[in-house]
Computed example of a mutant assay.
Amino acid sequence: MKRLSPKQQTFTLLFAALSLTAGCAGPTNNTQRGAAGGAVLGGLAGAIIGNNRGSGNAASGAAIGAAAGAIAGGAIGHSKDKREAQAASGYPSASNTSSVTNITVTGAPPMPPASIVENQPPRPNASAVWVPGYWSYENGMSYVWVPGRWEIPPPGTNTFQPPYWMQQGNGNVYVRGSWR
């Protein structure tokens, strides 16, 4: 195989990095920056390893390193985008409330008040899912309205299950809302 000149190696590295990051469109800039930065760093590391491996094939090392770096950097950036979008929503994650102990009542559960009609604001992020408002039974004493909000679902989920009452033995258990 023909060995590339240093100038050709540099061009190949830059071309590979730009090609890989051109299609990395995420919800915000963190995904793109992570993919681009990862591709460049991975490409440089791959070129050095490929060149020092004995075959002197820096171009293939750069391409492989750029691909791996773009994927890793993009994933890290996307994770940061999701955290920022959730923080920007101004509401705590409904997924964080599922760890709270469920409430059990003897006999029939108390009925919640009528739902409140809400205006749904514009979606803040392409990954956001609208969680409609609901009445949450708090402290085993009364219902509290939880306003609707946009939320980024946890990985592997896409639907919010609102809270509900489930019959258990001689009573009922209030099961808090969670992502499924």
Rank of each mutant, 00 (worst) to 15 (best):
Q9A: 03
D81I: 08
P153K: 02
R83W: 13
P154Q: 07
S98N: 10
N51G: 07
N125W: 04
G50N: 02
N102A: 11
G34T: 02
G37H: 01
M1V: 13
N170P: 14
S89E: 09
N29L: 13
I71H: 08
Y174W: 15
L44P: 00
A75W: 12
T104Y: 15
Q168M: 12
N172A: 11
T10R: 00
M111W: 11
A114G: 12
I76Q: 06
G73E: 00
S178C: 07
P109N: 08
G69L: 02
A126T: 12
V40N: 00
G54E: 02
Q167S: 14
K2M: 12
W145A: 07
G54C: 04
G148R: 11
T97E: 13
N158D: 14
A85D: 05
G69D: 06
A59E: 10
S93Q: 12
G133W: 05
S5N: 05
K7R: 14
I76Y: 06
A128K: 09
S93A: 15
A72W: 04
L18G: 15
G50F: 00
P6G: 02
V117D: 13
R176L: 05
A59S: 12
I103N: 05
A94T: 15
V40M: 01
R180I: 10
N51C: 02
V146I: 15
W165K: 05
I152C: 06
Q32N: 04
P132E: 11
G156D: 14
L41W: 00
W130T: 09
A36D: 05
R180W: 01
P122W: 02
P92V: 13
N51D: 08
W165C: 03
P162N: 09
G56T: 00
A70D: 06
G74K: 07
P132T: 08
W135P: 08
A58G: 07
P121H: 08
N29K: 07
S5M: 01
S95V: 08
A66E: 01
T101C: 03
K2W: 09
A114W: 01
A85Y: 03
S79Q: 11
N102W: 04
T28H: 10
N139L: 12
L13D: 00
L18P: 04
G107P: 10
Y143H: 09
Y174K: 03
K2R: 13
N29I: 14
M1R: 10
Q161I: 15
Y137C: 10
K2I: 15
N125M: 04
R33T: 09
V105D: 06
S136Y: 10
A25M: 14
S99P: 05
A36G: 13
S95A: 15
K80F: 11
A72K: 04
G171M: 04
G38Q: 02
G107C: 11
Y134C: 05
T106M: 14
G50M: 01
V105P: 09
E138K: 12
G65H: 01
S60L: 04
S93W: 09
